[in-house]
Computed example of a mutant assay.
Amino acid sequence: MQQELRVAAYAVCVRDDEILLARWVAKDGTKRWTLPGGGMDHGEDPVRTVVREVEEETGYLTAPTALLGIDSIRRSWLRRFAGPGDFQGLRIIYEAQVTGGALRNETGGSTDLAAWHPLEAVPGLPRVELVDVGLDLWRERPPVGRSRLTDPANG
């Protein structure tokens, strides 16, 4: 079985009761909102990762202000020629503050649009689970940095 681990860092940027999101485009063309952020390069510090990724996807310069938590997801797959696989995503989630730059869309990346959304509108958006996990961590500030939405103990 092929195993894959991906470590990524994401930002929860909230100001004036709005959250900054990037619209992720899946390989099949499906578009859903996500937290700005992405994969950590080998040897890269996670704080540097989140700052770089937010700027790439939104145009904003940011300063992480708190580590909100770490989320882990696991998915199995069966590919036609590659056989079974087991993917684990380790997602480091920070609270971050916009310090400069200007809102713009990413070109040539995995997202196609960046925008601020009212917090109360988030439940109605087509979004990935990570948005809900990030907002839960931001609101609840759990002592061990684990969202109740993905904690196996809440099963």
Score class of each variant (00 low, 15 high):
Met1Ile: 11
Gln2Pro: 15
Gln2Ala: 14
Gln2Cys: 13
Glu4Leu: 12
Val7His: 00
Ala11Thr: 04
Arg15Cys: 07
Arg15Asn: 07
Asp16Trp: 14
Glu18Ile: 10
Ile19Ser: 08
Leu20Val: 06
Leu21Asp: 05
Ala22Ile: 09
Val25Trp: 13
Val25Ala: 11
Lys27Val: 04
Lys27Gly: 08
Asp28Gln: 09
Thr30Ser: 10
Arg32Ser: 03
Trp33Cys: 00
Trp33Ile: 00
Thr34Ala: 05
Thr34His: 08
Leu35Ala: 01
Leu35Asn: 00
Gly37Glu: 03
Gly37Ile: 02
Gly38Tyr: 00
Met40Leu: 14
Asp41Met: 09
Asp41Asn: 09
Asp41Tyr: 05
His42Ala: 06
Glu44Arg: 06
Glu44Pro: 08
Glu44Ser: 08
Pro46Gly: 06
Val47Gly: 02
Val47Gln: 07
Arg48Ala: 15
Arg48Asn: 14
Thr49Val: 12
Val51Gly: 00
Val51Met: 14
Arg52Glu: 05
Glu53Ser: 03
Glu53Arg: 10
Glu53Thr: 03
Val54Tyr: 01
Glu55Cys: 06
Glu55Met: 06
Tyr60Gly: 03
Ala66Gly: 06
Leu67Cys: 07
Leu67Glu: 04
Leu68Thr: 01
Gly69Ser: 04
Asp71Phe: 08
Asp71Ile: 05
Ser72Glu: 14
Ser72Gln: 13
Ser72Asn: 12
Ile73Leu: 11
Arg74Glu: 10
Arg74Val: 05
Arg74Gly: 09
Ser76Asn: 11
Trp77Lys: 12
Trp77His: 12
Trp77Tyr: 13
Leu78Gly: 11
Leu78Ala: 13
Arg80Gly: 07
Phe81Ser: 08
Gly83His: 14
Pro84Val: 06
Pro84Arg: 10
Gly85Ile: 04
Asp86Gln: 13
Asp86Lys: 12
Asp86Tyr: 14
Phe87Ala: 08
Gln88Leu: 07
Gln88Asp: 04
Arg91Cys: 03
Ile92Gly: 02
Ile92Met: 08
Ile93Gln: 00
Tyr94Gln: 03
Tyr94Phe: 15
Ala96Ser: 14
Gln97Gly: 01
Val98Gln: 00
Thr99Ile: 15
Gly100Ala: 11
Gly101Trp: 08
Leu103Ala: 02
Leu103Gly: 02
Arg104Gln: 04
Arg104Met: 03
Arg104Asn: 02
Asn105Gln: 07
Glu106Arg: 13
Leu113Ile: 10
Ala115Leu: 09
Ala115Ser: 11
His117Gly: 12
His117Lys: 15
His117Arg: 15
Glu120Phe: 13
Pro123Asp: 01
Pro126Arg: 11
Arg127Gly: 01
Glu129Gln: 13
Leu130Thr: 01
Val131Arg: 00
Asp132Val: 03
Gly134Thr: 01
Asp136Gln: 10
Leu137Arg: 04
Arg139Ile: 12
Arg141Met: 08
Pro142Tyr: 11
Pro143Phe: 13
Pro143Trp: 10
Val144Asp: 05
Arg148His: 09
Arg148Pro: 05
Leu149Tyr: 09
Leu149Glu: 03
Leu149Pro: 04
Asp151Ile: 06
Asn154Leu: 11
Gly155Ala: 10
Gly155Asp: 11
Gly155Val: 09
